[in-house]
Structure formats: structure tokens, C-alpha cells
């Protein structure tokens, strides 16, 4: 299905959002979570969306992933207007999403099992992705025997095993401590360099966004709209060592100056709401 023409439309980009608005509820009770958001993500690009809590970041990812419909506007993935999950898209969720009844290898092999790939072949492929996320030796374990960070890596490996051309990640490391987040950030950078996937990361961590991204989209507090786009010109390949550089600090300060205002607005509105 051909995507409708739009002023900034580029048919070659894997992800294109045209004036996407998402409202919950109707009439006077309606809540606008995302307001007229338009952007593109180029092939192989790593883009992060940062914004204060409640700005509609995760809602935006659910719309792009086809898990919920946009109220207005449209999402185009690989030149198709989506009306549900697109086969080119893989999603890593914020919440722990491994299947507790399956071993690590059977979790990762799940998308291959759905395609009818034989046991030996799918296990060989799953082992490759398990190695990629650094979980070699844990194939036979169940998620209940793993730490939170390891489980999230299982989820990433499972999504990668489906070979998505576009990877959406919804704050995948939100529940983890800072050190683990930085190290898993390294892992994501290595994987992205290897697979050259188009990646969209939702995060509230400015550090994580600067460490990983080519571009950062800053969202305003509710209703969430695009406030500014920051291009990150730090050299690649990157590792978490980059966080101590002067340039990295300058990006953090720059983005925080924008986000601070939005986060303060969110905080004061939530305080007013609780009075």
C-alpha cells in the first residue's frame, strides 16, 4: 500500500510519522498523549526519543509498533501505512517480557518456532543470538534463574532472532542500575554495528540517549510534541568510555537545559494533581 504524500515524506526511509496524534478517552475527558508528531528514521540510523515522564514516549512507540492506533495522522513503515504490527518491526518492551515457562534458548528460538523452523536449526540460530547478547552458558536456564539485566538481554535476543529490519526499544534498561545500563548500552552498540538495524529507542536517560544515538528527539511534557532534534556527532564506534569525554558532557548539558523545563512542568502539574 503506497503511503500518502506529506510535505516531508521520504519514500526511502524505513520509518516515517506524519502528524501523529494519540488521544485517550473522548469529549471533555479526552487526554492527548501525543500531539502532531512528525519525524523520520533513516536506514541504519539510531534515534532516541527522550522526554519527561508522562510525555507520551511509550505511547508513541506503541503507535509505531502497531500495537495501538493513532487518533490522527499516520505511521509509514517501509513505505506502507501501518494498521497493525508490521513484519519488519521488532519490539523490546520496558517490562520484563520473557516467557517464564521456557528456557533461555526456547525463549530466543520462539519467533523461529512460529515460522516452523526445525528444532536443531532454530536452536543453532538462537545460540548465535544468545552469544551476541553475552549469555553463552545460560541456554538451559529458565528466566526465574536469571537477573533482571540478563532477562532483558534474553528479550533483546528473542526480538533479534526474528530478524527485524527495524528495532523499537521501549526503555529496555529502565529497571536496571546505572552500571548495568552503561554495559548493556555497549552491548546494544556492538549489536547495532553488527546488524546495521534501524533503531528507535525510547528512554528517559539522557546519558543512554547520547551514548547510543545518531539523533535525539526531545519531547515536551503532555501533550507530547517534538520540541527539538539534536544530532549527536560523537565518533563511532562508541563504548561507554565516551561518557567521561568533554563533548559528551556538553551534549548532556544541552539536552538537559531543554528537558529541565519540561520535567519541571510535569512535576508541578503532578503536584497540583495530588493536592
Amino acid at each position: 500500500m503506497a503511503a500518502p504524500r506529506f510535505p516531508d515524506y521520504e519514500p526511502t526511509v524505513p520509518v516515517f510519522l506524519a502528524q501523529v496524534t494519540k488521544r485517550f478517552g473522548e469529549g471533555s475527558d479526552a487526554l492527548t498523549a501525543v500531539d502532531s508528531v512528525s519525524f523520520t528514521v533513516a536506514a541504519g540510523e539510531f534515534v532516541s526519543v527522550v522526554g519527561p515522564s508522562g510525555c507520551g514516549k511509550s505511547t508513541l512507540l506503541h503507535v509505531i509498533g502497531g500495537l495501538t492506533d493513532a487518533t490522527l495522522g499516520s505511521v509509514h513503515v517501509e513505505n506502507e501505512t501501518i494498521d497493525g504490527p508490521h513484519p519488519a518491526v521488532g519490539i523490546v518492551f520496558q517490562e520484563e517480557s520473557t516467557f517464564p515457562w521456557r528456557s533461555v534458548i526456547d525463549n530466543v528460538a520462539f519467533p523461529l518456532e512460529l515460522r516452523g523452523v526445525g528444532r536443531a536449526e532454530r536452536h543453532a540460530a538462537a545460540s548465535h543470538y544468545i552469544d551476541m547478547v553475552g549469555l553463552h552458558g545460560f541456554e538451559k536456564r529458565h528466566p526465574s534463574e536469571l537477573s533482571g539485566g540478563m532477562r532483558q538481554r534474553v528479550s533483546i535476543a528473542r526480538t533479534l532472532a526474528a530478524k527485524p529490519r527495524i528495532l523499537l526499544m521501549d526503555e529496555p534498561f529502565a529497571a536496571l542500575d546505572e552500571q548495568t545500563r552503561l554495559l548493556l548500552g555497549d552491548k546494544v552498540l556492538q549489536i547495532q554495528q553488527q546488524l546495521k538495524q534501524t533503531t528507535l529507542l525510547i528512554t528517559h536517560s539522557i546519558t543512554e540517549a547520547v551514548q547510543l544515538s545518531d539523533r535525539i528527539l526531545i519531547m515536551s511534557y503532555r501533550p507530547g510534541h517534538l520540541k527539538r532534534i539534536v544530532k549527536v556527532d560523537l565518533p563511532r564506534p562508541r563504548t561507554s568510555d565516551i561518557v567521561s569525554s568533554r563533548e559528551f558532557g556538553a551534549y548532556i548539558a544541552d539536552i538537559w537545559s531543554d528537558l529541565r523545563e519540561e520535567a519541571s512542568r510535569g512535576l508541578s502539574e503532578s503536584e497540583r494533581g495530588s493536592e
Binding site: G84, E95, P111
Partner: peptide
């Protein structure tokens, strides 16, 4: 059943 598991199934287009 946790909502996220349903979302996973939908993302894999089960």
C-alpha cells in the same frame, strides 16, 4: 496474564 506478554504476542503477529 501480564499485559506485556499479550503485547509480545501481538508484536510477533501471532
Amino acid at each position: 496474564t501480564r499485559r506485556v506478554l499479550i503485547d509480545v504476542s501481538r508484536s510477533f503477529r501471532l
